[in-house]
Amino acid sequence: MNAVKKIVKAREFTSFLFLAGLFLVVGIINPAFLSVDNISACFNSSMVYTLIAVGMAFAIFIGEIDVSVGSTMGLSAAVAGTMIQNGSNWFLAFAVGILIGVVVGLVNGWGVAVMKIPSLIFTLGTNGILRGMMYLQVGVEQVNSLPKEFKDMSSKTLVGRFTVYYCCAVLLTIGIHFLLTRTKRGRYFIAVGDNAGGAELVGIPATRTKVTAYLICGVLSAAAGIIFASRIGIVTSLSGNGYEMKAVAACVLGGISLSGGVGSVIGAGIGAVIMASISYLLVFMEAPSNYDNAITGVILITIVVVDALMQHRAAVNNRHARLAARTSAVPGGKEGLEQ
């Protein structure tokens, strides 16, 4: 019973309800949508978003942000894609792609945690550098003759109609969720994001935790890049552009607060599915794909504004409750308050 209550009260449950409601509304408008094929397609197409949103969630947990995920993803896709295209060993290519993520993560972590530069600014700078390096790698041409086996990897299914990639992403997300909530080191991230100074005082290595968060973020976005290359099959010099903002949007939709210390990676995963589904749902609503951005914007703004108002209300109620408790403990206090 308690477990059920806990789940219902969780922030990500609201996001899940929202996703279910979205599917239901579209299903009522166009019953053809409600088939296993279509719904699993929504989940499968969210794979790249899921990985970068979970990575971004780490940066947001510690109260920072990483706007270089899009270009990290693009660079890793470009480098690994070129290597695979030229016939090198796949695992070597994957390793090089991931290595890019490690390096980017460490550099970002150094700048933000050690040099104490505002994260938005620093990652903006690395974003520019990486984007430029990507142009150097891809140039005017594109990586478009990837081997068929590599591209087919993305359509192989594992459980039911869910692809191997998506199942891996889900397992990874659940695994990370348990590491974050059930282990001591995992809880450091939330603690540092909630109150960095306090965390430092109770002996949590705040700097190291922040660097680790950026490292994970870099690695996950690099992995997303490799999957992107396999799924789309083409890498241009613009690939991954704008994904950083979509990742932030997915996190916010999943109930993660940008002020840090609140939320879970499961929420990020659900937010990613919402972000990926919107354009797919529009097809079934027979609306032109022009609506995509406008609807994303409206949903995003509505959710955060409602959330902020509810939080404000809860804070005011808490304060009243505290005040009432304090004054009723003192003889005549309550009357005094009422007067």
């Binding site: 903002m245 406008a294 955060v304």
Partner: peptide, 8 residues
Amino acid sequence: VTLGGSFL
């Protein structure tokens, strides 16, 4: 908000 605004 401005991220949402940029989409909107």
